[in-house]
Design a protein around this nucleic acid. Structure first.
Lengths: 327, 327
DNA sequence: TTGTAGGCGTTATCAT
DNA sequence: ATGATAACGCCTACAA
């Protein structure tokens, strides 16, 4: 086991003071070039790495950001978060931050976890995935001045805090227009109960696109909790209204819808949302979110606040349509 | 923003020395009960939390363990790692550790990341998922005395280091026996090229079970890289051999097989491996790994080494069969 | 059983 | 441009 290399080791090796080494690390511009190069060589030669704990004690920053990993409910939608997490880890890494994981089963416990994480690890920031109306978590963080970004809009006040989101309405609009272009007129929608920001947004894209095309959407939508079984049940109900196609708020619902219309003639077109692996596996056409991009923008927003102390505008990303053979 | 609560604040509040507070925290038994209670009340009243950075500087331990998050290749197998990660986070949390994420595209870069993580964050341990023959990562960690556990056996020497694994051979044996019991005799196997520990293990379970039942497995297996398309291709090829059922090394392969036998009569039974969300969604019978349990045992092994300085025996978990309607 | 005195590695302040 | 000094919060001797 090699001896521990500290800033003092480097200083001795480069024949400068510890402070100069620190300056080379943190404010290179104030060090004379010749000195700086000597120090940099020593650093490389010794394989020196700044100790994060010591640095943190002085600066109060841990270069750690926290993200929550969810229980994989039906396991389909879970993959969305996972892909986001992967992108987050990569981008944060590039920006010099590491991602710390935590779990929580409800908002109260999640807030308690914030408190703990902040107290013991002095986390620099949080990335929240999914936001709800009157979200107590964002309120808590804002109140305490803790930096954070959400992947998902603050539905009550768009300027409440930095956020990144994907335009869900644009996604369902894309899907609806695709179906209209294919000649469909009776296009249904399967979504979530009114009141969830995400669900209402996705429904609006479908609704407004039909209206704009002069098609009456009345009676062609149904709402339920997310899930394959729920989707199947609602779609069976919807079939009586005679739709020739259906846009769904999630791949879970779409999968259920697919099962409900199996054997129905003429074939009912189905489009899902999220472009999950399951969609790819069964050939389900689905709205695709740029999750890697979303994660990257979250990190951008965070480093803006953390490193440059400047808050930037929210980011709304555009989804695309992954065409397969169900529509 | 509340004032920062340090050990000194607590000491003052409880009218004891800082040392006594520290003792209450780290060696409660040497503090008189009355004093201890007074200190504990002060801690609760002030909401004191030990600062991890300061503690780490003294003790050299960060209470952080690292785990890798993979790119979601075909997105199906990725879910296995995700479920494992979720379990890991929960269990580690309960044991007082946090999970730090990292990514790496190959073994060399992964080792470089170890070096970085160890140098700057002083990670306590690593959890590696998936092991290969002659794994350079485990060699590197062992060489440096870094604590780690693998989820996956060290295929070359079972006592090389602590590990947790699921008995893959038992899983395919379970699947094969289920098919035998259903009256099948021509049971095929779709797996990965010889040479991967996991793949060979899973093939062996199928092979040995057939042999034990007096059935000749010759000519009834095919090998390929993982993937739906690959599975479909190989299964088409296999159909000529007239199997009535097929056991697959993964759900991806099974999904491909399912597509290949669609329309073939009589219906060919298909069993996958990993019980991914996709399997649940399409009704694919699949071998299920106890991932949460595996994660928990990994943490057990780690805390054994980290906290009690004792190394425990490896853990081999048994899978089960999730019966659906493809077999 | 409790208190006192360092020091872990770093960076900020201030002097040179 | 560079160097000396103090301080971050905690823990581990050692002394009382």
């Amino acid at each position: 086991m090699a001896e521990k290399v500290t800033i003092a080791t480097v200083a001795r090796h480069a024949r400068v003071s510890r402070q100069t080494v620190s300056n080379v690390l943190n404010s290179p511009h104030i060090v004379r070039q010749e000195t700086r190069e000597r120090v940099e060589q020593a650093i490389a030669a010794l394989g020196y790495r700044a100790n994060q704990a010591a640095r943190q004690m002085r600066t109060g920053r841990s270069r750690l950001i926290a993200a929550r990993i969810e229980p994989t409910r039906d396991g389909i939608n879970g993959s969305v978060l996972d892909r986001f997490l992967h992108g987050l880890t990569e981008t944060a890494d590039a920006a010099g931050y590491r991602v710390l994981l935590y779990t929580a089963t409800d908002h109260d416990r999640e807030i308690a976890t914030y408190d703990d994480l902040l107290g013991t690890y002095e986390l620099d920031a949080f990335v929240l995935v999914g936001t709800t109306h009157d979200d107590p978590r964002t309120a808590w963080l804002t109140e305490r001045g803790v930096p954070f970004v959400t992947f998902g809009r603050p539905w009550d006040a768009l300027d409440a805090h930095p956020w990144v989101d994907v335009d869900g309405a644009a996604g369902t609009a894309l899907a609806t227009r695709h179906l209209l272009d294919a000649g469909h007129r009776r296009i249904a929608f399967l979504g979530w109960p009114v009141g969830s920001g995400v669900g209402d947004d996705r429904r609006a894209g479908w609704h407004d696109t039909l209206r704009a095309a002069g098609v009456d959407p009345t009676g062609l939508h149904r709402e339920t909790e997310d899930g394959i079984a729920e989707g199947e049940r609602l779609m069976r109900d919807l079939v009586a209204a005679g739709p020739t196609a259906v846009v769904c708020a999630s791949d879970s619902l779409a999968l259920g819808a697919l099962q409900a219309v199996r054997g129905v003639h003429p074939q009912v077109s189905v489009i899902g949302f999220d472009d999950t692996p399951v969609a790819a596996a069964v050939g389900l056409t689905s709205v695709s979110q740029p999750l890697g991009e979303a994660a990257a923008r979250c990190v951008d927003l965070l480093t803006g606040v953390l490193d440059d102390d400047q808050t930037s505008a929210p980011v709304l990303l555009q989804p695309s349509l992954a065409l397969r053979h169900t529509a």
